[in-house]
Design a protein around this nucleic acid. Structure first.
Lengths: 239, 239
DNA sequence: GATTATTGTAACAAAGTATTTCGGGGCATG
DNA sequence: CATGCCCCGAAATACTTTGTTACAATAATC
C-alpha cells in the first residue's frame, strides 16, 4: 500500500486554487489548500504534508519570504508559482531555497511532473536532511531514535516496534500535549484519509500501549480523549 | 575562510563549454572542463571537485550512465544538462542520483542558482559531499572497502560476499538512515527496473543479513519498513 | 440504573515479507 | 565442448504485520 502524497497549496486566488486542487486530486494527491502564510504554518504543523506549492504573490507576507522562513525550519519540498517572465522571482526563489518553480499561467502537467521530480529528489535525501529536523526524542525515560528507527526503554533495552507502531509513536511524540484526532494520526502516519468505520488507529494505539505503557490497562503516556482522539501526555525532549 | 568552489564541466561541445566556463569563472568558480567520462574520472580522482555539471548527450557512455556510476562511488553534487523537453532524461537522471537538472538551452543565471542550491544542500548533509571518491566506509565496526570490494568484520576477519551482495551493501551504506524502496535498490545495484512480483531484492537482503546481522531473525542493521522497503540503521563513516 | 455512544482488544483474514529449495546459466578449467 | 562450481532468482512455503469484524468494557447521558 503506497502512501498517498499530501500536497499543500498556498494560493489566495480561489479560482486558480480550485482548478489546481481538482487536477492534483485527480492525479493521486491528497490536497489541502490555504490562502496565506499563517494558515500554511498551522496546517504544516498538524498534517503530514509532503510538498508545498506556493504562490509568490500573496497578501501579507509574500511567497518568497514564506519560502525563506520555511527553509529555516524544515526541508519540505517547495515549488513556487511565479508570474510569467518574472525571471527575478524565479532566481530569487531558488536562492531562497525553493526546489523548483513554475511560471503562471502554467501547464498543469508540467507542474505535476516537477512536483513528482522534486519529491523524488527529496525522498532520496538521507534522514537528517529531511523535513524532520530531530534525530532523537526522549520521553519518560524512553528514547526514540529517528535515525535508527529504534526505541530504547528506560532500562536501555531495545524494544522492537513494527514500522507502523514506530511511525505512530513518532507522530505522537512530535505533537505532545495535544489532542490528535484519528484522522490526523492516520494522515501523519500512513498519509491516508480515513474511511467511515476505520478503527486501524485504535488498534495500533492498543498495540503500542502494550509495548510502552507500564500498565496498558491504565495508560498514562498515551491517554484517550473521548470523541476527540489521543493525547501524548509525557513531556518530550528533543536532542 | 571560504574556499573557491571547483566545478567540473563534462561537455563535448566546445562552444557551449567555453561559454559556460567563462560565465562560471566570472561568478567565482574554479572551472575545469572535460569532453568525456574517461577524462571526468581522471580529473575527479586528481582534483578536489565540488560539483559536476554533466551533459547527458556525450560520445561513448551517456551522461546518465556516468551519473549512475559516479553515484556508486562518491557523493559529489551533479547537475545534468538535458535536452529541452526530454522529460524522460530528467526523470531518469534524478533516479540515477543527479541532484538537479537544467534544460538546454539554459539560462546561465538559472544554472548558477541551481548549482548554488545544490551545493548548499550538499554541504548541509551529515557528512560532506566529497570530491574524492570514497574508498572505505565503516559501520558498526564493519569495514567496506570499495576498492578491494572486500568486507571486514568487526573482529577483522574477511567476510566473503558475492558481488550482488556487495553491491547491495554498498547501495545501503551510501544511503544510510533512509527508507529505500525495492525499486530504488534494484536501480542502484543492477541498474534495472523491477517487474511486477520481483522478489529478488528480498532474497538478496536475506542473504546479506545472514552474513552481517548478529541475529538475522532480529535484524538491527538492515531493518524492514513494511510496504516501504529497507532501512540501513547503522551510522556510516566515510574514510 | 438503564441506555447509548465510544473505545479496547481478541480473533480472524488479508497483505506483505522471509527463507528454503531447486534449476538455469555464466564462467573457468580441463 | 564437456565438467564442475557458484551465483542468482523463480517458486513454494512459512512466518509477520496489519486491518477488519465482532463483541466486551468503559464512559457519558438521561
Amino acid at each position: 500500500m503506497e502512501r498517498t502524497p499530501h500536497c499543500l497549496i498556498v494560493e489566495d486566488d480561489r479560482e486558480i486554487g480550485g482548478l489546481l486542487s481538482r487536477f492534483l486530486a485527480k492525479h493521486g494527491f491528497r490536497v489541502s489548500m490555504v490562502p496565506d502564510g499563517k494558515a500554511m504554518r498551522r496546517v504544516l504543523s498538524e498534517s503530514g504534508i509532503d510538498i508545498v506549492v506556493l504562490d509568490v504573490m500573496l497578501p501579507g507576507e509574500g511567497g518568497l519570504e514564506l519560502c525563506r522562513r520555511l527553509r529555516l525550519e524544515s526541508n519540505i519540498p517547495v515549488i513556487l508559482l511565479t508570474a510569467l517572465g518574472e525571471e527575478t522571482d524565479r532566481i530569487i526563489g531558488l536562492e531562497m531555497g525553493a526546489d523548483d518553480y513554475v511560471a503562471k499561467p502554467f501547464n498543469q502537467r508540467e507542474l505535476l511532473a516537477r512536483m513528482r521530480a522534486v519529491m523524488r529528489r527529496a525522498s532520496s535525501l538521507p534522514y537528517d536532511a529531511r523535513a524532520v529536523p530531530l534525530r532523537v526524542m526522549t520521553f519518560a525515560g524512553w528514547r526514540v531514535d529517528l535515525a535508527k528507527r529504534q526505541l530504547q526503554a528506560p532500562d536501555d533495552t531495545l524494544v522492537v516496534l513494527t514500522s507502523g507502531e514506530f511511525d505512530l509513536l513518532v507522530a505522537l511524540c512530535q505533537h505532545p500535549q495535544r489532542v490528535l484526532s484519528r484522522e490526523q494520526l492516520l494522515d501523519l502516519t500512513v498519509g491516508r484519509a480515513a474511511d467511515a468505520g476505520d478503527r486501524s488507529v485504535d488498534i495500533r494505539i492498543s498495540r503500542l500501549r502494550r509495548k510502552i505503557e507500564p500498565d496498558p490497562k491504565n495508560p498514562k503516556i498515551i491517554t484517550t480523549v473521548r470523541s476527540g482522539g489521543y493525547f501524548f501526555a509525557a513531556e518530550v525532549a528533543l536532542t
